[in-house]
């Protein structure tokens, strides 16, 4: 294949550029639109490069459209989900990875299976349950819903990281008089720290990007996370695209940065059944 490769390298590069153009098209549009004035977006023919570059949209979304509130909500929900998820997933993962008990295999099966369930299936009844528990329009409700739907993946990933730690290390600590919980906290977690960080970031991103629960459970503007807040720019008759793209740009930066940090581990985790060994 190597000869083929060297011979066709220019072709490959051309193909790469074409494919990249295809894949990045909406982001070019985003950047182009966010730098236009509200008049220029309704110009025919549409312009690729804004005639009058303006950053006015940035100040408008912050000052007139309360983007800060949406950012705040997203941050609270994402951090809350991350924390709650770690609190419940790490102990569960440790148990599955290291302890012998009846039903261990069943638990692993179940974790894989529920990872696939769509939130839409439960959202119609969860709405009733949240209404009764007065969790509508609360961050707590969103955090709980997001946590439940990230538990399985987080536990699955952490189980993998814990299992990879040689049991001798843990046994040595136990001989030195460390309790089970002590070894988990003082030995296992520090070794599995890179994995833990991956899982935390994954939870954060998932909650940050979540839309369905927010759409269903949140009506108050002040409680809206970014995805739902930005969706408010979409009107029935017209949409403020210059403001939408500006907000989208700002909302995407944190997730893109975080995603690059964990991308390698995420791919490995998702494919772990096949790559392992």
């Amino acid at each position: 294949m190597s000869n083929w490769r060297t011979r066709n390298r220019p072709l490959v590069i051309l193909l790469t550029l074409l494919l990249l153009g295809l894949m990045l098209f909406p982001f070019f549009v985003m950047v182009s639109t966010m730098l236009k004035s509200s008049q220029e977006i309704y110009v025919v023919p549409a312009t690729w490069i804004p005639r009058n570059l303006t950053f006015a949209n940035f100040t408008r979304v912050w000052i007139e459209y309360h983007l800060l509130l949406y950012f705040r909500s997203s941050l609270i929900v994402a951090l809350g989900t991350m924390a709650l998820n770690i609190l419940v997933s790490v102990p569960a993962a440790y148990a599955v990875a290291r302890l012998r008990f009846l039903g261990r295999k069943a638990v692993m099966y179940l974790l894989l299976a529920i990872q696939m369930f769509s939130p839409v299936i439960v959202v119609i009844s969860l709405f009733r349950i949240f209404a009764r528990a007065q969790l509508i329009d609360t961050y707590t409700g969103l955090i709980l819903a997001n946590t439940v739907f990230t538990i399985s993946f987080a536990t699955w990933m952490m189980t993998g990281y814990f299992s990879a730690i040689p049991s001798e290390i843990e046994e040595a600590a136990r001989i030195d008089g460390c309790s089970r919980v002590g070894t988990l906290l003082r030995v296992m977690l520090p070794i599995a720290a890179p994995g833990l960080v991956t899982v935390m970031i994954y939870n954060f991103i998932t909650a940050w990007n979540e839309f369905l629960f927010a759409l269903t459970f949140i009506n108050a503007r002040a409680k809206m996370p970014l995805t739902l807040g930005i969706y408010q720019f979409v009107g029935r008759w017209s949409t403020q695209w210059e403001l939408l793209t500006t907000s989208a740009f700002l909302a995407l930066i944190p997730v893109l940065v975080l995603f690059y940090l964990i991308e390698k581990q995420l791919v490995a985790g998702l494919a772990s059944g096949a790559v392992k060994g």
Partner: peptide
Amino acid sequence: FIIPWASSVPISAMLWKWVYDHEFGL
């Protein structure tokens, strides 16, 4: 190449809605 996956699906969908706009879309 990763960006479309890394990006938030709801936000991407909103961007595409604008991309597809019949009259003013790019």
